[in-house]
Amino acid sequence: MEAKIGISSDNLAEVAHSLSKILADEYVLYTKTRKAHWNVEGPDFYNKHKFFEEQYTQLEDIVDAVAERIRKLGHYAPASLKQFLELTHLTEDDRGKNDAQTYIKILLADHESILIHLRENIDTFAATLKDAGTSDYITGLMETHETMAWMLRAHLS
């Protein structure tokens, strides 16, 4: 059933498509953070293992919330790895070592990339697509990524 929430169906479709790209980015970052959690090695293994767990848990909640935002707008969320890889602007191949510093640098770059993408879309959602709710939502999401990026950055020497 179509969502009748004061936003045109064309604008809702465009917002949902943009959110699908964000969802794909979040899912790829979630997967990469899980990889870091599972595979990190080194003298600081335990602390970094726990740190990456905290990060992927936050990302898991974000993935769910973005998908639910798409559903609230009356559209279906992408939910396959194939779709995510087609929609994301991140890369899943990092080819790095399994030490904490390598994982942190890779994950930080992805958070910063997502931050830039979110920041670039805040005004588009509000002004062009007339969806202040999604604009506000991704502003909050941006702030969450800023905090997560800060936590990663704090681990770099």
Score class of each variant (00 low, 15 high):
residue 89 H to T: 11
residue 149 A to G: 12
residue 82 K to A: 02
residue 139 T to V: 11
residue 25 D to K: 04
residue 16 A to C: 12
residue 134 T to H: 11
residue 99 D to F: 11
residue 150 W to H: 12
residue 93 D to E: 08
residue 81 L to A: 06
residue 59 L to T: 02
residue 145 H to I: 02
residue 102 T to P: 09
residue 147 T to Q: 09
residue 134 T to R: 10
residue 102 T to S: 14
residue 47 N to F: 06
residue 67 A to C: 03
residue 130 K to N: 10
residue 61 D to W: 03
residue 92 E to A: 10
residue 135 S to H: 05
residue 129 L to C: 09
residue 18 S to C: 04
residue 152 L to E: 06
residue 11 N to K: 09
residue 81 L to K: 07
residue 50 K to I: 10
residue 109 A to Y: 02
residue 48 K to W: 02
residue 122 I to P: 03
residue 113 S to D: 04
residue 5 I to M: 13
residue 47 N to R: 10
residue 11 N to D: 06
residue 124 T to K: 14
residue 1 M to G: 15
residue 57 T to W: 02
residue 8 S to T: 10
residue 8 S to N: 05
residue 9 S to T: 08
residue 145 H to N: 11
residue 90 L to T: 01
residue 147 T to N: 05
residue 27 Y to G: 00
residue 103 Y to F: 15
residue 19 L to N: 01
residue 152 L to Q: 05
residue 113 S to A: 14
residue 123 D to T: 14
residue 58 Q to M: 01
residue 8 S to Y: 03
residue 122 I to G: 07
residue 103 Y to E: 06
residue 98 N to D: 13
residue 112 E to D: 14
residue 99 D to W: 11
residue 110 D to I: 05
residue 55 Q to A: 07
residue 77 A to I: 00
residue 36 A to M: 15
residue 157 S to E: 11
residue 137 Y to Q: 02
residue 35 K to N: 12
residue 32 K to T: 00
residue 49 H to D: 04
residue 99 D to N: 14
residue 133 G to Y: 07
residue 56 Y to N: 07
residue 128 T to Y: 07
residue 61 D to G: 09
residue 147 T to L: 09
residue 31 T to F: 09
residue 127 A to N: 14
residue 44 D to E: 12
residue 33 T to D: 11
residue 107 L to K: 08
residue 110 D to Y: 02
residue 39 N to H: 15
residue 96 G to A: 11
residue 83 Q to I: 00
residue 60 E to M: 11
residue 39 N to A: 15
residue 140 G to R: 07
residue 105 K to A: 09
residue 30 Y to V: 01
residue 10 D to L: 13
residue 58 Q to C: 04
residue 85 L to I: 01
residue 33 T to N: 13
residue 3 A to W: 02
residue 107 L to D: 10
residue 77 A to S: 10
residue 73 L to T: 01
residue 24 A to K: 01
residue 77 A to T: 00
residue 140 G to T: 03
residue 64 D to M: 07
residue 149 A to M: 12
residue 125 F to Y: 11
residue 124 T to N: 08
residue 96 G to N: 09
residue 24 A to H: 03
residue 41 E to N: 14
residue 126 A to Y: 08
residue 76 Y to A: 08
residue 37 H to Q: 14
residue 151 M to S: 04
residue 97 K to S: 14
residue 7 I to W: 03
residue 141 L to W: 05
residue 48 K to L: 09
residue 95 R to Y: 01
residue 79 A to G: 14
residue 40 V to L: 14
residue 93 D to L: 04
residue 24 A to D: 00
residue 124 T to W: 05
residue 80 S to N: 03
residue 41 E to M: 14
residue 84 F to I: 00
